[in-house]
């Protein structure tokens, strides 16, 4: 299986590579269009600020490539938010895969949310073997509201999307690569079941 992690200069991608390695697979970090197109599975990471991340995607033309991919694609954290129509962070337009916008948490809660939280209401094979209310690791200031593409729900300030899916596109707000055994199961599902 050929796994490509899209390398566009956004954040902590070694951790994803290592997490995949712990599952017994090798992933390649790449920004090469041919290599991404030829992959069986594509991971679209993202840590940092949305505006600058989207700028980097546009500089490399990857913003046009990603929405056209036909193989399973998993966006993680900011990666998932950039797959939406737009995000309030830096008033940035996204890739428009999910018909929803990322918005900021209210000031009723501490922002960013940093730490472990629970996920539930699964509606995808991505969560095969994961129990309702298991804990996963989250670090973010913006969230995606519940929408028709929501496949898992979490709560902080309010109920919102912990994960999204539309056709071959998947997204998790949480970091499976940092979410202990539960995260490993979800990553394994993306590699082996999806």
């Amino acid at each position: 299986m050929k796994i490509v992690i899209i390398n566009y200069g956004a954040g902590n991608i070694q951790s994803i590579k290592f997490a995949i390695q712990r599952l017994g697979y090798e992933a390649v970090l790449s920004s090469d269009k041919e290599e991404i197109l030829a992959a069986d599975k594509v991971i679209f990471p993202g840590v940092g600020e949305a505006g600058s991340a989207m700028g980097k995607l546009k500089d490399s033309g990857l913003h046009l490539l990603i929405p056209q991919l036909k193989q399973p694609v998993l966006g993680i954290c900011l990666g998932m938010q950039l797959m939406c129509k737009a995000t309030e962070e830096g008033n940035t337009s996204g890739l428009g895969i999910f018909e929803v916008n990322a918005v900021k948490f209210s000031n009723k809660v501490k922002v960013p949310q940093i730490g472990w939280n629970q996920i539930a209401k699964f509606d995808s094979v991505l969560f095969n073997g994961v129990s309702e209310n298991e804990y996963i690791y989250m670090v973010h200031s913006f969230y995606v509201p519940i929408c028709k593409d929501t496949i898992a729900v979490t709560n902080y300030d309010l109920d919102y999307s912990a994960a999204l899916q539309k056709n071959n596109f998947y997204g998790t707000q949480f970091h499976p690569e940092k979410s202990s055994l539960v995260g490993e199961r979800i990553l394994r599902n993306f590699l082996e079941v999806v």
Partner: peptide, 28 residues
Amino acid sequence: EKVNIPFTVGGGISSVEDVDILLHNGAD
């Protein structure tokens, strides 16, 4: 490479370059 939970690194960090290396190497 080995650990599947988040971790923080501190001590003697004084520049953007210091942080860049640590985050690139996998610190959260």
